[in-house]
Design a protein around this nucleic acid. Structure first.
Lengths: 203, 203
DNA sequence: GTCTATAAGACGATAGAC
DNA sequence: GTCTATCGTCTTATAGAC
């Protein structure tokens, strides 16, 4: 309403910077976990100063919750897109969502940050928030994606396994270990090439 | 060889204490993760002093690796017992292992410590060790349990999901959230009572 | 809005008594 | 073998300049 042109520009740039830091935080949290990640590492990854990222979110904990919120929001967006696509797709809705799910790995750390949160159920602040994320996903699968309980269960189990294998960096052993090759060939039947390509990117 | 009676007694008590600390460490690492756990918390859980637990393992990292080793060893023991049992069991070997798997939850933190390690694939020391654990389990399922690749895959996926739901403390919402109730009823069809009973134990 | 400097606290590890 | 005391470091968060 009273928004002037310069003010809008500033706001936009500010939000862009925030998005940049949030993305860097997603990567760092995904890689090292909540406690292992430092605000300094996030700052360096985003190319800003450490006190600045703290200022931006107030506390490290609030920053993690923001990362979590963004992650689950993006995930739901991808799922919703998959449901829309699957209307005129020959393969089932499950496969359709699964394909989009694996592609979420492009957003480095997104699925891993979620997974890291899932391991902190005992935390008094992060725990409830993480449980809410899981509920959100399950309710989506049941109500919007129209899965039966056992379908949703199987879908979630596969997702957790994918996340775990990515967190483990199991692809690092793909060439060296025949058993690993067999496992990954089984788990990522179509998207293996994509997965292996992710290894080569920076730390 | 030169072992005297008193020395043996001392050794035994010493190993018992070590086992006690290892068990406490398993609980603490499982709950807070590698970085979130402090040597002080482990010490308090074991009822000894903080410098003592550091002395015992040299470093926090070495202590975590010892926890990891014990965890995977206990898991394989449980699996081997299940395979032996399944010889004259009507249900498949998968169900038999799965039953023993859920009962591993009694050893508080054992499965969660493993899962925490799986999220640290990027760590230069813990990462390779964690991948070795996963390989060990997969090779066991394929070669000793006689599972086909897709059976082993499904078994692992279910296991990762169980671990995740336990790490999330999803059972805390069982009564309050109908969706959670539905999910847990689906995932833990026979062992739900057992799972819910675990909630009530101390922190 | 973003930085430098730094305070305050937590943590892993060591020294040394018993 | 186990403790108390403590050092040095790392880390979050604040103060304040620009």
């Amino acid at each position: 309403m009273t928004t002037t042109a310069p003010e809008t520009t500033t706001r936009m740039r500010s939000e862009e910077r925030r998005a940049l830091v949030l993305e860097a935080a997603t990567r760092v949290f995904g890689e090292r976990g909540y406690h292992g990640a430092t605000t300094d590492a996030v700052a360096r990854a985003a190319g800003v100063s450490q006190p600045y990222v703290v200022r931006m979110f107030g506390t490290k904990e609030a920053m993690f919750l923001a990362v979590l919120d963004r992650a689950v929001e993006r995930m739901m967006d991808a799922f919703r897109a998959a449901v829309a696509e699957s209307a005129d797709a020959p393969e089932g809705i499950g496969r359709c969502i699964a394909t989009n799910y694996v592609e979420l790995l492009s957003d480095r750390g997104l699925l891993l940050s979620l997974m890291q949160a899932f391991m902190l159920g005992a935390d008094p602040v992060i725990g409830p928030e993480a449980r809410a994320c899981m509920r959100k996903v399950y309710v989506f699968l049941r109500e919007e994606a129209g899965m039966a309980p056992d379908e949703a269960h199987e879908f979630l189990a596969t997702g957790m396994m994918l996340n775990t294998l990515v967190g483990l960096r199991m692809a690092d052993d793909y060439e060296r270990e025949p058993a690993v090759r067999e496992l990954l060939d089984e788990v990522f039947p179509t998207k293996l090439e994509f997965l292996l390509s992710l290894r080569d990117r920076e730390s």
